[in-house]
Structures are given as C-alpha cells and as structure tokens.
C-alpha cells in the first residue's frame, strides 16, 4: 500500500501536503514564541529554557524538544524529496517549450520550487546561526535573547532573514491552498475561505517573523 502511494504522483502530493501542514503548524507556534522577545530578555530566555523542560516530569529534560525536532526533520526531508521527484517528473513531461512565450500563473505559484530551495538553505543557516552557533561569532549558549540581537545587528543577518521570510509568505500562500486541494478538502463553496486563510496565514507569519529583525534594527529590542 505504502509503495503504491509513494509511486503515484497523487501519493507524493499527499506526502507534500501533510508534511507541509506539519511544518506550517510548527511555524505558527514558532512565530508566537518569537514575539516574546518584545517583552524583554528575562521572559524570552525563560521561554527558551522552558522549551527544554516541556513535559517534565513525564518527559526527561529536552525529550519533548527532540521529539519535535525529529518530526520536523522527517517533514522537511519528506517534503523536499517528494518536491524534487515531482519536479523532475514535471520537467520530463514538458521537455520542449513553446516558442510563443506568455506570462503564466501567479508569482507565488511560479516561485514554489526556487522559493522552497531558498527556504531549505535558510533553515540550514538558521540552525547553524541560532541553535548550534557554528556560524555565529560570539555565540553564547543559553542566552538566546543576546544571540538574536547579535544576528540582527549584522546587515547580512537581516538580509538573509527578511528575504527568507518573504519567500516563506509566498510559499505558504500557494502551499496552504494547494495542500487543501491535494487532500480533497477544497470545494467551490469553501474556495474563498481557503484562499483567505492562506493569505492571512502568509501575511501573519511573514509579518510576525520579520517583526523581530525590525525590532532590533529600530532599537525596540536591544
């Protein structure tokens, strides 16, 4: 059964839709958590520490966090692998282009593939920057507030982050609605509502995430 699902274009799309929705749910939680930075270093660092103790005493220290990480890595890998395989298939299915060119589809729709690649690269940088601190000069483990302020005090930190968040907004805008169609949840009466939810989600996520670097740049967060 799993084999037939994975071999089918519709099955791969289903994998993309489900993994995409898992990541989207995480992003909403992540964005809300980030906004705590506007309430000072104490609250933000306390929240960051709490993320490691969630579920105690049932869960051991950091177990819940690692569980979430494992699910997220699985979702990213499943999403990327199916996207790669579907894209390869799509390009093979239309090898010769039309001589007469005309603009096709919306910007959000056309940028799904490259937008996805940008987001993938961003995730790698983001983890190396603020989780492991590998590419973060002067990284202080256990002091996320200071680390965030450091990152957004550099021009490249701001540029990478803001570009990625704009790409995220576009990706979510087409992705959320598409996932609903892939899972068969769309209908003519529900279409407007789904498109509105997609737009609102995209806007809120982009604005919510970008608020942090903007806060640092304007000195609201320091």
């Amino acid at each position: 059964m799993a084999r037939t699902v994975w071999d089918s274009t519709l099955g791969k799309k289903t994998v993309m839709a489900v993994s995409g929705l898992i990541m989207l749910l995480y992003l909403v939680v992540h964005m809300i958590g980030n906004l705590k930075i506007f309430f000072g270093a104490g609250e933000f660092d306390h929240y960051a520490h709490w993320l490691r103790t969630v579920g105690e005493p049932f869960m051991h220290y950091e177990w819940t966090l690692w569980l979430v990480r494992i699910v997220l890595v699985a979702a990213v890998v499943a999403h990327a692998v199916s996207a790669y395989q579907l894209s390869r298939r799509d390009i093979r299915a239309r090898p010769s282009k039309y001589v007469h060119k005309r603009p096709r589809a919306s910007y959000a729709t056309r940028t799904m593939r490259w937008g996805g690649v940008i987001l993938g690269l961003f995730i790698v940088w983001h983890i190396l920057d603020l989780t492991t601190g590998t590419v973060h000069p002067g990284f202080r483990p256990g002091h996320p507030y200071q680390n965030v302020v450091d990152t957004f005090s550099t021009w490249y930190g701001n540029v990478i982050y803001i570009v990625a968040m704009l790409a995220l907004g576009l990706h979510v805008r087409h992705g959320f609605w598409s996932a609903a169609q892939t899972l068969g949840a769309g209908s003519r009466t529900r279409d407007r509502a789904l498109k509105t939810v997609a737009d609102v989600l995209a806007l809120l996520l982009t604005a919510g995430f970008i608020a942090v670097p903007v806060g640092v740049m304007t000195g609201v967060v320091s």
Binding site: T9, R89, D90, A105, T109, H174, W177, Q181
Partner: peptide, 11 residues
Amino acid sequence: EGFGGCTLTGE
C-alpha cells in the same frame, strides 16, 4: 503515460 504532476497553477 509520463504526464506530469499538478502544481495547481490553474492553467
């Protein structure tokens, strides 16, 4: 048959 997949462009 080698047809591609749907990316919901609506074309």
